[in-house]
């Protein structure tokens, strides 16, 4: 009976890659949105400081 280790490695390798990628997507997206949220809050609290639209890094929606 052949053990077909290469197939076992392929299956587990694929699972690790897919799950790690999804995890990374979640972490990144959350950080991105968190940063954008902080920027928005700062803009709301101190509108005088930045009178014009700023394109902050990580800001998803620059002010109109």
């Amino acid at each position: 009976m052949a053990d077909n280790w290469s197939f076992v490695i392929a299956a587990y390798g694929l699972a690790v890659v897919v799950l790690a990628m999804y995890w990374r997507f979640l972490v990144r997206r959350e950080r991105e949105l968190d940063d954008a949220g902080v920027v928005r809050q700062q803009l709301r609290q101190a509108p005088g400081v930045s009178g014009h639209a700023q394109t902050e890094p990580g800001s998803r929606s620059p002010l109109p």
Binding site: M1, V8, A15
Partner: peptide, 19 residues
């Protein structure tokens, strides 16, 4: 253990069935 009929390839089951 190594499954008697299929050999080690059966270990994929521990990934497939929980998925």
């Amino acid at each position: 253990p190594r499954e008697a009929t299929q050999g080690n390839v059966q270990r994929i089951m521990y990934l497939h069935v929980p998925s």
